[in-house]
Every structure is written in structure tokens, then in C-alpha cells.
Design a protein around this nucleic acid. Structure first.
Length: 597
RNA sequence: GGUUCCGUAGCUUAAUUGGAUAGAGCACCUGGUUACGGCCCAGGAGGUUGUGGGUUCGAGUCCCGCCGGAAUCACCA
């Protein structure tokens, strides 16, 4: 049994014995003791005064005395201002370490056949431009979430919905036809997604020129947009695409393939992957069918102009368009279709959408619609929304060219990591290839950690320079701490120091060692917490605290050079376990740790 | 204007879900350490937790009103 629960039970028992009233042990409030106070666990006595009818000091003392009497684990207690602080014995801590030291994947819950299945959708790119910093946040959050949820005992399916159709893609295609001169990724040496993105930009430029010309000839802005020939051509192309016009369709396939190749490179560099990819071009027609089914069942209604709507005013929302008057589908229709396909493919218990917070309203509506259409997870689907990524210079705006390209950013991070590592020269003896791998690990650790450590809901500012710092609350600092532990363990091995299977529980522990053990044993709670609130940031902050605490310990006392064998053994086992937990924590964030750096 | 989210030190952020004196990092200033690795330690400065009320033994956290910022409210995706 977990010690927290044992304390709770015993407190309940104490109350019954002392004051003659039964209490639910779950209502007993217990926390880890604040760092600046003596003690390990704290029982909050205020809520118990109602029962004891005595002052906080007295109540705390009576309960404390009872606990000490009845629990061998408790060595001392102290009551301060209504808080009962309990100090556990050294042998308790060493025995706890004995219990967990050989447990693999400590803190993770294994999935079984009957585990619930959660599907996590993330990434969801458009195929008309390359990925940028905003997508990076999405991908990292989604991937980390899938690992966290998967470690709390749930089955996870990672999925991606690719927005591979629509007017925006026709714009790129049209620009390529008009001004591309047959350019291909091979002929230009450009990554496919970048090449297509260039034509998307080209379209926008030419379109603006055309509008400016029309306005100069005396039209108003609105009229000019209506009269634009370019836009008309793009729309015409979309209609041809929907009609599967062979020429348009082939062009669409070819350009999308270029983009996918490019995306796959970026995904690989980011270290993310998917179990199942859906394409909007395959789901939008299913969405239409679903909407028509809903229409037949009287869930939706048709307006005079033939468009189809859902009335959500009873739920406090507006009317929502589901099919245009010309019968074509909108964003919502496609998401309904995708949901249906997924539901057919997997026995989904819970659906999580990792999508930016600008779409909160959309997902509120989607949830209601899916519920109406009879999907059991529709009502409580989770829209994991996150804030924007900004730069120190200000907001990213694609029109103003201040977007940070994902590939550029990754390359820049690797360069910085290489320069810094070379200066420090700890990789002497590594081959070039091995060293490159380490640079990459550090670069991605910096990038990923910096983005994942902040509360997802908040808008964040990405500062490349700060993120790759080796000190402070950064990924490389944690990676460094891990590498340092491995270095200590190697040293122990060199000196032929071994540890017994079971540590002797009679040795004394220092404050620092106990503090570290407490943190180690709190790891399972942290994982559970992160899974519950869907927050990689919880893991990130924990990993940092643990690394920092270890570094203090490392500084304060010798490990390998400790003369007393019993002490040395405890410290080695503790160090090894902390190394494992740092590795696991970083793994949950999708970050690798190097043996040396 | 309606709805939703956010507001903590110069900057980036945390706070065990309502608990003790709001805790870190970066940057800045003193000093000390630096056996296993760049670490680390002590101290200084920096906070009316946007603001005013309310609930509570107890509020950064819950409720209400303001102020500021963001997003959204399309036959765009």
C-alpha cells in the first residue's frame, strides 16, 4: 500500500479512537511537507477540528502521538500552526528504495486487453505550405500527450488528418501551372513542401497585384475581389477537382506527393509519427452522407436556398452551416466524416483533438453534432487547445514573412548545439557520425523542452538562444544531468564497485538523500497527474526539479569516492534510479538523453 | 457587442487543485566553492499575484464587478 494511504487510514482510525467518530479516510488531507519545514508528509488538521472540538495544536498532537504509536514508519512528528508534520524513518526510505530499485519502467502502467482506447489527433497540416513553428508546438504536444496517456495504462492511437483539398491547394496548383515552368523538387533541389509553398505565395502576390490594378482602374475593393480572374480560375479548378477532371487530379496528386515527402522529412526530424493517417479528400464525402442522414432523421434542417443547417440555439449556440447551397461541404462536414471513418476503424472510447485555441468554438459545435449523430464519445471529446507561439520580435505573420520555418529552425538548433559542444570538447574520441547524433539529440532536446515546459493553454514566446542554454530550466541541462549520472556509474564500474541485491536498511541517510527519494517515489503520481490534466508541462517541471536536486546532492557528497560501503551503495542505487527516471520523463516528452555530451 | 481563454519579479515561468513566509530560471550585484563534468552554495536587489469587493479558520487558486490582452462569433479551412 502507498504510504500516503496508510497514513490516511491511520488518521481516520485515530479520529475514531480519540473522538469516537467514524471518518472516511479519503477526506483526510495530506500533502508532501513544504521544503522549508522539517518532515516528509503533512496532515492538515483544520478540517478535523469540527470533530475533535479542540484547538489545532492539541488535535495535531493527539493524532500525531497516535500515528507514531501505531506506525513503525513514523519516526517523529511536529505540529506547527495547524499542520501536523510527519517525519518517516530512515529504514522506511531505504526499504522503499529496495522495493523499487529493480522495477523497470517504474511509474508507468502497462496496458492490457481491456484498457480503454484513446485516439489522439494532432499535426493536421494543410498541403499548400511547409510546417512552421506553430505546427511544431502542435506536433510536440500531440506526440508527448500520446506517450503520457499511453503510460497511464490506456491504449493510444496517434492519428493525423491531412487537409489535402480545398481552394488553398488549388491556388498553389494554379500558380505552378502558370509560372512554374515545370519545376520539380528534383529540378530545383528544393524540398517538396517548400516548393509548393513558394507557389502558394506566388499566387497571393499575383492576386494582390491584380486587385491593386483593378482598384486603380476605379473599382472598390469588394468589386475588385469579385472580378478577379485569378480567383475565378482557382474556384473553377476546385470544381474540376471535385469532378475528378483527369488533368487537375493528376496535378493535384503530383504536387501533394511532393509535399508529403517534405512533411515526412520534417516529422522524422521532429521524431514524431502516426499510427493512422486520414485524408480529407477521402472523408469529406462521408461527412456529406452523415449530414444527409441527420437531415432525414430530423436532426438538421434545409433552408430555402438548399443549404443544410443545425440549430444549436437550445444548447446556447447559434445555427451552424453544414452543407452549402451548392451542396459542397464545409470544414465541419469534413470533421464529421473523419469522425465516422475513425469510429468504424477503431473501438474508440475517447477522442482527443490537439488543435489551436482559435478553434474552441468549432469543437464545441462538433461535440454537440457528433453527440446528436449518436457517437458515444462525441459529447465528451477533448479539444486539447493550446496557445500561439510568438517570437521575441513579436507575432508570426505569414504575410509579413516573419514565420519561422520548421526545417530552418531545426537546422539552426543543430548548428548551435554543434558549436557549443565543440567548444566544450567532451566528445573527443567519438566518430564524426556519433558526435553528430549527440548534437542532434541536444538540439532537439532544447527545442522540445523549451516548448513543452510551458502550460499549453498559454501563448508562449519562443527564444532560440535561451532554449539551448546548458544551464537553467532547459532541456540540455536535464540531458547533461543524465549524462553526468552515467559518467558516475561508469566510474563505479571501472572501480569494480558492486551493489548488493538488497540494501542494508541500517545506514543513516542525509536530508538530501531523503529529499531525492521522496521525489523519486512521487514519480508515479506525477505521471498520473500529467495524464489526467493532459499536460506535458507537469512532467517537464518535475524532471527539472529532480535534475536540479540531484546536482545539489552530487555537489554536497561523494558517490564513488565515499569510503563507507553502505552509504556508497545507497548513493549509487539512488543515482541510477534517478537517471532512469530522468530518462523516462524525457521519453514522455519525446526527448532522448545522451550517454555523454 | 456576445462567448471563451489569459493576466504572478525586467524577461520566461511554478505553486501538490482552497493550505504554512508566492517558489525557480535567465539577466544584474557581493562573496565562497569547484575531488565524479561545465556544477553548486550563501547573500543582495526585484511581488499590493491587473484591480475592487465577496465566500472561508485560510484565496494566486472559488464567486461577482471593473481594467488590459488574445481568440472566436463566415456558404474560409
Amino acid at each position: 500500500m502507498k504510504i500516503e494511504n496508510k497514513i490516511k487510514d491511520t488518521v481516520a482510525e485515530a479520529i475514531e479512537n480519540l473522538y469516537g467518530q467514524k471518518t472516511d479516510s479519503n477526506s483526510v488531507q495530506i500533502n508532501l511537507t513544504r521544503k522549508d519545514q522539517k518532515g516528509d508528509f503533512t496532515v492538515v488538521v483544520f478540517p478535523l477540528l469540527r470533530i475533535s472540538k479542540k484547538n489545532p495544536e492539541e488535535t495535531g498532537k493527539e493524532i500525531g502521538a497516535y500515528l507514531k504509536e501505531n506506525m513503525t514508519e513514523i519516526a517523529e512528528f511536529e505540529v506547527i500552526k495547524g499542520f501536523l508534520n510527519l517525519l518517516l524513518s530512515h529504514s522506511y526510505w531505504i526499504n522503499s528504495l529496495n522495493e523499487i530499485k529493480d522495477v523497470e519502467e517504474y511509474g508507468f502502467t502497462k496496458t492490457t486487453e481491456d484498457s480503454p482506447l484513446t485516439m489522439i489527433e494532432y499535426s493536421s497540416p494543410n498541403t499548400n505550405k511547409p510546417l512552421h513553428l506553430g505546427h511544431i508546438r502542435n506536433n510536440l504536444l500531440g506526440y508527448s500527450l500520446s506517450r503520457i496517456v499511453g503510460s497511464t495504462g490506456e491504449k493510444v492511437v496517434k492519428t493525423n488528418i491531412v487537409n489535402d483539398r480545398g481552394i488553398h491547394i488549388c491556388k498553389s496548383m494554379l500558380a505552378w501551372q502558370k509560372w512554374g515552368n515545370g519545376a520539380t523538387p528534383e529540378s530545383t533541389g528544393k524540398k517538396g513542401d517548400h516548393l509548393v509553398g513558394d507557389f502558394y505565395v506566388k499566387f497571393d502576390q499575383e492576386y494582390k497585384k491584380e486587385i491593386a490594378g483593378l482598384v486603380a482602374s476605379g473599382l472598390s475593393g469588394d468589386e475588385a475581389e469579385k472580378q478577379s480572374k485569378l480567383m475565378a480560375e482557382a474556384r473553377e479548378m476546385l470544381l474540376k477537382w471535385e469532378a475528378k477532371d483527369p488533368e487537375v487530379y493528376e496535378l493535384w496528386k503530383m504536387m501533394n506527393d511532393w509535399v508529403y515527402k517534405g512533411f515526412n522529412e520534417t516529422y522524422k526530424a521532429l521524431g514524431v509519427d502516426f499510427d493512422k493517417i486520414y485524408y480529407e479528400s477521402e472523408t469529406y464525402s462521408i461527412g456529406k452522407e452523415e449530414v444527409l442522414r441527420g437531415l432525414e432523421e430530423g436532426l438538421f434542417y434545409r433552408k430555402e436556398d438548399n443549404s443544410v443547417w443545425a440549430d444549436l440555439s437550445a444548447e446556447g449556440l447559434d445555427e451552424k452551416l453544414l452543407l452549402r447551397s451548392d451542396g459542397t461541404s464545409v470544414y465541419m462536414t469534413q470533421d464529421i466524416g473523419t469522425a465516422k471513418m475513425r469510429f468504424n476503424d477503431y473501438p474508440i472510447d475517447k477522442m482527443v483533438y490537439v488543435v489551436g485555441n482559435e478553434q474552441i468554438y468549432h469543437f464545441k459545435v462538433l461535440s454537440l453534432l457528433l453527440d446528436k449523430l449518436g457517437y458515444k464519445w462525441g459529447k465528451d471529446l477533448v479539444h486539447f487547445s493550446y496557445g500561439m507561439v510568438e517570437l521575441p520580435e513579436g507575432k508570426m505573420k505569414s504575410r509579413e514573412g516573419t514565420v519561422v520555418d520548421a526545417d530552418d529552425l531545426i537546422a539552426e538548433m543543430v548548428n548551435t548545439a554543434r558549436e557549443m559542444s565543440k567548444e566544450l570538447g567532451k566528445l573527443d574520441g567519438y566518430t564524426e557520425e556519433e558526435a553528430e547524433k549527440v548534437y542532434y539529440t541536444i538540439a532537439m532536446g532544447a527545442l522540445k523542452y523549451f516548448i513543452l515546459k510551458v502550460d499549453p493553454r498559454k501563448n508562449m514566446t519562443f527564444n532560440p538562444k535561451e532554449s539551448i542554454d546548458f544551464n537553467g530550466n532547459t532541456g540540455p541541462f536535464i540531458q547533461y544531468s543524465y549524462a553526468r549520472i552515467q559518467s558516475v556509474l561508469r566510474k563505479a564500474k571501472d572501480k569494480n564497485i558492486t551493489v548488493p541485491d538488497v540494501l542494508n536498511d541500517s545506514s543513516e541517510l542525509t536530508e538530501k538523500e531523503i529529499q531525492l527519494l521522496k521525489m523519486v517515489m512521487n514519480f508515479p503520481n506525477i505521471v498520473a497527474e500529467a495524464g489526467k490534466v493532459y499536460s506535458p508541462a507537469v512532467i517537464a517541471n518535475y524532471a527539472y526539479d529532480l535534475a536540479k536536486e540531484f546536482n545539489q546532492f552530487y555537489h554536497e557528497m561523494p558517490i564513488v569516492f565515499e569510503e563507507d560501503a553502505k552509504k556508497r551503495e545507497v548513493r549509487l542505487v539512488l543515482s541510477e534510479k534517478i537517471g532512469e527516471i530522468i530518462r523516462q520523463s524525457m521519453w514522455l516528452l519525446g526527448i532522448n538523453v545522451p550517454e555523454r555530451m
